[in-house]
């Protein structure tokens, strides 16, 4: 398939316009629900401190569960994060800000990836390129939604990326310097996969932790989208590892050529785990 980058861009723009149109009623509803939520939520400072302390130990577990992100540097942040001055905010605000910080990190990571020729240029695999662009945009929308919900509850906007993962993401990106297109693509896919899985697992857990039904609905509407990102990246990673990049394609007839294992590699568990979930207060605004 010959791809005209201009036409692809136009299609993508059109797609994003449609997405924005589709989101409008969602945002209106979110605004309305947040109003209800605000009136129903009475923050209790003591409860907030308890909640904050109860999640400190999860920092270690979160970093240890992600091999790439647990590389040197990540664990050293535990002490700093454990003393984050976020205990004054309500439980839901802290959780929403942490989610926003994860989304901010994802946006930054995809943005960096798209500067790499084997991801962002016209010579990149078209499916991988479009996936990176669409997914970056989706994470930006998720960050906006989480921040809107946090602000509506009286919290601050989280504009920074998750502090626990920033150094290690930077290190992973730096390691891609000088990599071949094949190695580099695999490296980017591996990094994105870990971030997406952390996001999905965190939101599965957060759906239980947040108190308001509005916020539960918000997390529930996003966790599955992140899980889809994971599924796609698992399939792409498997095909790259199998030296079959030509099968990363949406062209008619591709399914017939896929190896049998490609049909199930994207959903390895019948129940989504949460052992790699980020601690709920990790990315709260200090």
């Amino acid at each position: 398939m010959n791809v005209d980058p201009r036409a692809l861009n136009e299609l993508l723009d059109e797609s994003q316009d449609l997405q924005a149109d589709a989101l409008r009623p969602t945002r209106d509803a979110l605004d309305e629900l947040v109003e209800v939520n605000r009136s129903a939520t009475i923050p209790d400072p003591l409860e907030n401190v308890d909640f904050h302390q109860s999640h400190r130990e999860g920092v270690v577990a979160s970093l240890a569960g992600a091999p790439l992100l647990a590389a040197a540097g990540g664990l050293a942040l535990v002490g700093v994060l454990a003393s984050a001055a976020s205990a004054a905010s309500s439980q839901d605000i802290q959780i929403l800000q942490t989610a926003a910080s994860i989304e901010n990190l994802a946006v930054a990571t995809y943005k960096t990836a798209l500067t790499l020729p084997y991801i962002g240029s016209s010579s990149a695999n078209a499916v991988v390129n479009k996936f990176a662009r669409v997914t970056m945009n989706q994470h930006a929308q998720h960050a906006d939604a989480f921040n809107a919900a946090a602000r509506a509850l009286g919290g601050k906007t989280q504009t920074k990326p998750d502090p626990a993962f920033v150094p290690v993401v930077n290190k992973a990106v730096a390691s891609l310097s000088g990599a071949s297109a094949a190695q580099g693509t695999l490296g980017v896919v591996g990094l994105a996969l870990e971030l997406e899985n952390i996001a999905a697992e965190t939101y599965v857990k957060d759906t239980v932790l947040v108190r308001s039904s509005t916020n539960k609905a918000l997390f529930a509407s996003i966790m599955g989208v992140e899980a889809q990102h994971v599924a796609v990246l698992l399939a792409v990673q498997a095909l790259l590892n199998a030296n079959a990049p030509q099968l990363i394609s949406l062209a008619p007839g591709t399914a017939a050529s896929l190896p049998a294992a490609a049909g199930s590699v994207g959903f390895p568990n019948a129940f989504y785990k949460t052992n790699n979930a980020a601690p709920a207060t990790q990315g709260a605004v200090k």
């Binding site: 479009k130 996936f131 669409v134 999905a200 599965v204 759906t207 239980v208 529930a220 966790m223 599955g224 989208v225 992140e226 899980a227 889809q228 990102h229 994971v230 599924a231 796609v232 399939a235 949406l250 062209a251 008619p252 591709t254 399914a255 896929l258 049909g263 994207g266 959903f267 568990n269 019948a270 129940f271 989504y272 785990k273 949460t274």
Partner: peptide
């Protein structure tokens, strides 16, 4: 419920891929 929903979503993504469509909701 939350541990199952993302798995169904993953099924959806792969089905879209098999159908030659963008692999996501």
């Amino acid at each position: 419920s939350s541990s199952i929903q993302p798995v169904e979503m993953q099924h959806i993504a792969i089905l879209y891929y098999v159908l030659g469509e963008y692999p996501g909701v």
